[in-house]
Every structure is written in C-alpha cells, then in structure tokens.
Design a protein around this nucleic acid. Structure first.
Lengths: 226, 226
DNA sequence: GCCAAACTGTCATACAATGACACTTGTCGT
DNA sequence: ACGACAAGTGTCATTGTATGACAGTTTGGC
C-alpha cells in the first residue's frame, strides 16, 4: 500500500481534511449499519445478535459497542439524523409563523425530504426501521426513549421561540409533545392501513394529524342512530 | 401445621374463595413489589439487581421472573393498574360527551383518585416511579413502551366510541395519542417545576394540557420586542 | 523513523432473561 | 385420610447485552 492514491500529500496540506484513520472509522461505522440492517431485514431485530453483526464486518463485538451504545442504537441512527434536520428546519421557519405552524411545516418538510432520500440515507432504511419496530418490543422501547429525550430538547427550542419559561409554562411542553404525538398516531395508522388497503406516505398522515390537532379535537361520540 | 385456623373448613364451602396457594402467590407478589420499591428508592433502579430483590423476599431470582416479565415490569405495575382504571372510567362517561371531553375527564378523574390513594396503591409509589424514571433510561423506555401498547388499545376503544374504522380514520389515533401526549408533557413540566418552585399535582397539569390541546395550540412566536 | 494518541482484539465480568428438570406443596376426588 | 395431579419453586445451565481492563496494532505529527 504505497501512496498510489492521487490525494496522498506528505505535507499536511489540508488540516481540515479527515485523515485515513477518520475515514476508516467512518467506513467501519457505515459497514456496521449496512450489515445490521441486512441481518435485521433477514432475521428480524431480536433474532439478530451483536456478534453476528460484528462478524459480518469482521470486527469484534467489543468494537461494535465502541461505535454504538446499544443494539438499538444502530437501528436508530436515522431517527437521530431526522431529529437534527428537524431542529435546523424549525430554526429556519420565519418568526411570524405561530409555533404550531412552524413545527408542522418543519416536520412535514423533513419527512418529505426523507421519503425522497434527501437526508443522506436511503428511504427504505427508514421504512425498514418502522417495520422492525412492529415486531420488536425492545426496538420500539428504544425508539420511544430516544424520541422522548429529543422531545425534551424540542421543548426548550419551542419555549425560546415563544419567549416563555418552560419551567412555569406548560404550553411549550404540549407543543413539543404534539410532535411526538402526531408522529406516533400517524405511524400507527399507516401501519394499520397497510394491512387492509395499501401504502400511504407517512408525511401526508403526519400533516393530517397536525390538522386534526389544530382543529381542537372536538369530535362527537357516535350518534347512535341504531 | 394442623387446622388451627378458624376458617379451615373441610367441606369446600366457597368455591370462589381463593385457596391458600392463591393467597400465598399474592403475598409473594406484593412482597416483591415492596422490596423492589424499597431498594429502588434506596439505590436507584439501575443499581438494583433482580437478585437483590429476590433475596430480600427470600425467593430465587428465577421465581422473580415467574411473577414479572422483566425488572421494569415490577416498577410499572401501577401504570398498568391506572390504565385499567382509565378504560373503565372512559366507558363510564356519558355517550353525549365528545370523545376528547370524555377522555379528559376520565384521565383527570383517575389521576385525582390515584393521588388520593383510591386506586389500591399508595400515591407515593407512583411518585417514586416518576422519580426513578428521571434517572433510569431503561425504566423510561419501559414505561413509554408500555404506554404505547396501551395507546393502541385506547385507539380501538375511541374508534368504537366515534363509530369509525381506525384503519382508515386518523382521528381516533390522534385522540388516543393525545392522552399520552398530555401525560408526558405534564410530567416533564411538573418535574421541571419542582426543581425551581415546588410541587404541583400532576392531575392539574394534565387537565391544563388538555385545555391547551383543545384550544388548538395556536400560539404566536415571540413578538420580538427587542 | 519515532513517539504519542487513537483504535482494536482479547480476555474477564456482571446482569437480565429463559429453558430444562427435579422437588416440594397445595388442591381435589374418593 | 390418602393418593394423584397440578401448581409453584429452586437449582443449574445457557444465551445475549453491555462494560472494564489491558495489551497489541495502526495512524498522525514531529
């Protein structure tokens, strides 16, 4: 392995450029994610062991845990990326917009982008994760835990945008929780809908969910026209 | 151990009465819960091992897992009981009430009852569980998973009340998710509030959260009066 | 080329959770 | 009262997740 690569430059030319070590680390990380999803798709989340994932990439399972905090973590990388994108998108919304509107447009925008593969990962991966969650309690739990942690952060962002103190004002908490709420409600229905009719884009369902929430939820009980 | 107890009756007098075996089982179960909470309160959830809980009651850890599916499970017994009470309370609401109103009153009613110790368990236990969740990710995850599963069931109850099909109508999903949403938002704020000002009853916060949700969440962003 | 830092593998270990099997105890019929 | 059967429990073994310690290797900076 001599310096046959064209970019090899003995004099440290670009101090920002990630070195070979960094690149290798990144490759290992992505290889682990790829291998994990391949195995998950094949055998399911619970039936796949960390050792199998590590073996597929030819590293020790100890190394796996140096890249990911848990087996759930490797499956939730996309959720993590989506959240980061969400915070940016929310910050980019014009300040005249009411918070719920900003939130709604930010989320729906992110989800549409994700469905088009514009967020740096294949859309199938996210779908795959949603499917896996149906069959694995531990993955569902991990996802919810992750989302809850993010909700706490979102609350601060929203409180700031509203100019109120989250320690004494319930509203930012409710708005942040609403994001989770809309997402979970939509995911549940999309899943149920798939079994009977067919696929529906999650982003559309989430948009609808926000519409319902903004409407105030005032639905009558069944008229009992027996 | 001869029949010195006054209730010993050779002729099976009451076929409904739970036998000694059943009573002993119940006692073991409650002893495990008691021991678990004592240890949790003392050392925290994560730092407490199943073996310690089992030892405190003088049973094997294998037996612990015959009573509870997981270490989280023993801490979530109250959450389980609250949910059962909620479903009953919801069913008892008059059919003229809009679903969101029925839900709100059912939940707030249950939580007030819980705070008064009218649900068969000490209110401190529930408070304790909420505290433990702040420090334990696995317990938080378990709680959220449990709540999510219950939400799915709630969705069906609500869909039924609304007279719609949950596979094609998003609204019952959103209403059910709203329950979780209101609860989590309130729990987060109550916790934050406690650190700065003091205690506030969770039931009141939840009631407020519903009011906010029913209002449609239309809050302006900060006026920027710089 | 050399040194220090970063990365990895190989132990060892703790804990959660489950299956298998034997043993004890409660329940029920006679 | 006795015995058969079922329920409950303990012991042992095993799998899988996760973490700490330590040594060996690779990489980047000098």
């Amino acid at each position: 392995m001599t310096a046959t690569a064209p970019e090899a430059d003995p004099a440290g030319r670009d101090p920002q450029a990630p070195g070979r070590r960094e690149r290798k680390k990144q490759r290992t990380r992505e290889a682990l994610i790829d291998a994990a999803f391949e195995l998950f798709a094949e055998k399911g989340f619970d039936a796949t062991t960390v050792e199998e994932i590590a073996d597929a990439v030819d590293v020790s399972s100890r190394t796996f845990f140096r890249y990911f905090a848990s087996k759930e973590d490797v499956a939730l990388t996309f959720q993590e990326e989506q959240f980061h994108a969400l915070v940016s998108a929310l910050a980019a919304r014009p300040p005249e917009e009411p918070v719920i509107t900003a939130m709604r447009r930010a989320i729906v925008g992110i989800m549409r982008a994700a469905e088009r593969g514009e967020l740096g990962f294949a859309p199938e991966r996210f779908d795959c994760m949603m499917m896996l969650m149906q069959d694995s309690n531990s993955l569902l739990a991990g996802s919810l835990e992750h989302a809850q942690k993010k909700q706490t952060m979102l609350t601060r962002v929203i409180a700031c945008r509203m100019g109120v103190d989250p320690a004494v004002d319930l509203r930012p908490h409710v708005v942040a929780a609403t994001a989770n709420c809309a997402f979970r409600a939509s995911a549940d229905m999309v899943q149920e809908y798939r079994d009977t009719c067919g696929d529906i884009p999650l982003s559309e369902a989430v948009d609808q969910a926000f519409a319902i929430l903004e409407g105030g939820l005032n639905f009558p009980s069944v008229p009992r026209g027996d």
